[in-house]
Simulated assay, not measured.
Amino acid sequence: MKRIVLFLATNIAVMLVMTVILSMLGVNHYLTAKGLTLGALAVFSLVVGFTGSIFSLLISKPMAKWSTGARVIDNPASSTEFWLVNTVKTLSQRAGIAMPEVAVYNGEPNAFATGAFKNSALVAVSTGLLESMTKEEVEAVLGHEVAHIANGDMVTMTLIQGVVNTFVVFLSRIAAYAVDSFLSKNDENHTPGLGFHIASFVFQILFGIGASLIVAWFSRQREFRADAGAAKLLGDRQPMINALARLGGMAPGELPQSMAAVGISDKPGWAELFSTHPPMAQRIAALQQLK
């Protein structure tokens, strides 16, 4: 909770500083003449930027169950399910978090962890992962997912997404006002119209692409941390290295697009900079360098 409050406070402080600086540069006077103040725009941007991200986080667990068809193991029906539940229980105790729900879903090799809160999360593995990996490798994957939960990665990514969304909304409208003003410089009574809305839409797309690069970079960093976390929970980095090597030789099971970043692996994007997961070779190399 302390980290969340600090993160939000930092974002609000940055927005306030930016608002003050732009006001000192005379932008606020210009916007006021056009019918909008920086303060109002900053508040609007914060609300729009965070509302969707926070709502998505709050419904992440039920949506994950619904979209993947994951079945929560309430009463283990086989030795494999019994082992899965006990393994997650042991790992979560080592990580100092409450026991997550454990689920299995039909699909190609993959696994994920999700949930709005550290002590009420969900860890799910696919049938393809269970069938294609050894128990030691599956345990490493489970350790990776538990590390994500212990690190608070779901909340962190939501906050980062909210921050970049806020700046995309804020800056796209500032830029749109500038373009609209330039196009109507000979009309002193001009107010924002179709040109502003078109420019705002275009800038939101362009800034959104830049924001995606930032979010993807943070996502890749958390994968390295979760790999290291799994090695720490298991007391040995080799099982995680073996698991990654195995996954690297298989096509990862597809997750819904909204969940792509939470899987143990993912298909690389058309450019590595947009990928939510680092290449397996880099993840293995990072583990090998651990002391």
Score class of each variant (00 low, 15 high):
A95R: 01
S78M: 07
V141R: 02
A243C: 06
R237I: 09
G162L: 03
V262K: 02
V138A: 05
R220P: 00
T37F: 10
S120C: 12
G208Q: 05
M259F: 14
I160L: 01
M24D: 02
S67W: 08
S219V: 13
L273H: 09
L22P: 04
N119E: 08
G128T: 06
F196C: 02
E223G: 08
V27R: 05
L84M: 06
A33T: 00
F274Y: 12
M18N: 03
V155C: 01
A199Q: 08
P279W: 00
G195I: 15
F82N: 05
V47L: 15
L6F: 14
Q204S: 15
W270L: 14
R71N: 09
L213C: 04
G128A: 06
I264H: 01
H190F: 12
D227Q: 09
A260Y: 01
T90W: 00
V168A: 00
T158V: 06
W217Q: 03
V202F: 02
G235S: 08
K232H: 09
V5I: 13
L36G: 09
M15S: 10
T19C: 01
I59R: 15
A116L: 04
G115P: 01
F170N: 08
Q93L: 09
A147I: 10
M99C: 00
N86P: 01
L247E: 08
W83I: 00
S181H: 11
T68M: 03
E137K: 04
Q93T: 02
L25E: 00
S78V: 06
G263V: 08
R3T: 14
F170S: 07
F170W: 03
L142V: 03
L91Q: 06
S172Q: 12
S67R: 12
F182I: 13
A140T: 09
F218P: 06
I97P: 07
S67Q: 15
